[in-house]
Each structure stands twice: as structure tokens, then as C-alpha cells.
């Protein structure tokens, strides 16, 4: 976190700084973000893929700090690199199965998809040049701090905040309901037909 804060203090995009240190930091963190992302999608080892994604999220947190979004940067480390990736690594451990090398199927579909994305990028990149017609405005001193964002969250967006907390509660309950094992219930009710229809359903996850 000290590194992030250092990165944030060095950048003052409202004034043209003569030092190139922020730009160098930006390139370094961009390389971390894109390199981690590319490693994530091309890894066959699942644990390595998750670790690459963690590196990506740390790099993104640094980039957020460069945009003066300090609260969101901290949240990125806590929620993404912390909570969500622990969830991912837990599921990878439960599933515990490397992807078997299999023949490339649906090659034409994949080619069409890849070409679509590349063409989307070629269309998008020139548009981004003109995305910022005016200059960059100077933010207030407390821009992006916890006090500032909290003030907005609990005044302007109180309903959305409460709705999102209920959404998270529903998601957690749904996750437990979907992922729990149904074995006990089935045995209690004596519905053995279900077992015969799907013999694999009775295998415990610990196998």
C-alpha cells in the first residue's frame, strides 16, 4: 500500500510535471496489468492463472491510485485481490483438475470471435483519441478520499447502496443454496431413483 500511496502522490495530472517518473510508473503498472491478464487467459495451470489475475488486480489498484481514486484502489486490493480471488482459489482447489489438452473444437467460431474483437479494437482506438476534448479539470484536495466518496455514497446514492447490500446478501444465500451437497436430503427422503439416474451425483466432493 505504501507503494500505491507513493505513486498517487507523485502524480499531479493537473499540472504538467517536468519529471517523467509518473509516466514510467504508468508504463510499469500497465505492463503488470496487461501481462497478468494475458497470462491469466493462456495458462493451463489453474492456480497459476489465479495468481496472474491477482497480479493484474494489484497493478490495477496502482493505476486507480494514479487517477486519485484512493478509496477505490484500497477497495480493489481488499475486495478483488483479497476476497474474490480467495473464492476463486478455493473453487480451483475444490475442483482440482487441470485442463486436459483437447483438440481445438469450434475453430471457425473462435476465429470469428477473435476477428470481431480485433476489429472492435481497431474501431475503438481512433475514437479514444478524441474522447477528451477539454483539458483535465483540477480536482478538489479531498477528491477520491474515503470521506469524500462516503459522503456521496450515503447522501446521493443511499438507495443504491442499500440495494447493493441486499443484492450481496441474496448472492451469498444463493451461493450456499446452489453449492451445498444434496446427498443428506435425498437419503432422508429415500429417493434412490435419483441416485440410479445420476450415479455421479452421490460422489462426495472430497473424492
Amino acid at each position: 500500500m505504501m507503494l500505491l500511496e507513493a505513486a498517487a502522490h507523485m502524480v499531479d495530472p493537473s499540472t504538467i510535471s517536468t519529471s517523467s517518473a509518473p509516466l514510467i510508473l504508468f508504463w510499469i503498472f500497465s505492463a503488470v496489468v496487461l501481462g497478468g491478464a494475458i497470462l491469466t487467459i493462456f495458462q493451463t495451470n489453474m492456480v497459476a492463472a489465479v495468481m496472474s489475475l491477482v497480479a493484474t488486480f494489484f497493478g490495477l489498484a496502482a493505476i486507480y491510485a494514479m487517477l486519485s481514486a484512493h478509496f477505490i484502489a484500497a477497495l480493489q486490493v481488499l475486495v478483488y485481490a483479497g476476497a474474490i480471488m480467495v473464492l476463486f482459489i478455493f473453487v480451483v482447489m475444490v475442483l482440482n483438475k487441470d485442463e486436459a489438452p483437447r483438440p481445438m473444437r469450434g475453430l471457425i467460431t473462435k476465429m470469428i470471435g477473435a476477428i470481431s474483437i480485433v476489429s472492435l479494437m481497431f474501431t475503438l482506438m481512433p475514437l479514444l483519441d478524441n474522447a477528451v476534448p477539454g483539458g483535465v479539470e483540477t480536482p478538489s484536495a479531498d477528491f477520491g478520499t474515503v470521506a469524500n466518496v462516503g459522503d456521496i455514497l450515503f447522501n446521493d446514492y443511499l438507495f443504491a447502496f442499500e440495494a447493493v447490500s441486499i443484492l450481496l446478501l441474496i448472492a451469498v444465500i444463493a451461493a450456499v443454496v446452489v453449492a451445498r451437497t444434496h446427498k443428506q436430503e435425498v437419503v432422508e427422503e429415500g429417493h434412490l431413483a435419483e441416485h440410479e439416474a445420476m450415479p455421479e451425483a452421490t460422489i462426495e466432493a472430497s473424492h
Binding site: 495530472p13 487517477l67 486519485s68 481514486a69 478509496f71 477505490i72 477497495l75 477528451v132 477539454g134 483535465v136 479539470e137 483540477t138 480536482p139 478538489s140 477528491f143 477520491g144 469524500n148 466518496v149 456521496i152 455514497l153 446521493d156 446514492y157 443504491a160 447493493v164
Partner: peptide, 14 residues
């Protein structure tokens, strides 16, 4: 950041 508008941070939070 371009528009110095902290409402974007609330959006990112959601």
C-alpha cells in the same frame, strides 16, 4: 478524474 467528479467513484463502488 477528467471531469473531477467523485460520483464516478460511487459508480465504481457499485
Amino acid at each position: 478524474r477528467i471531469h473531477a467528479d467523485p460520483h464516478a467513484h460511487a459508480f465504481a463502488f457499485m
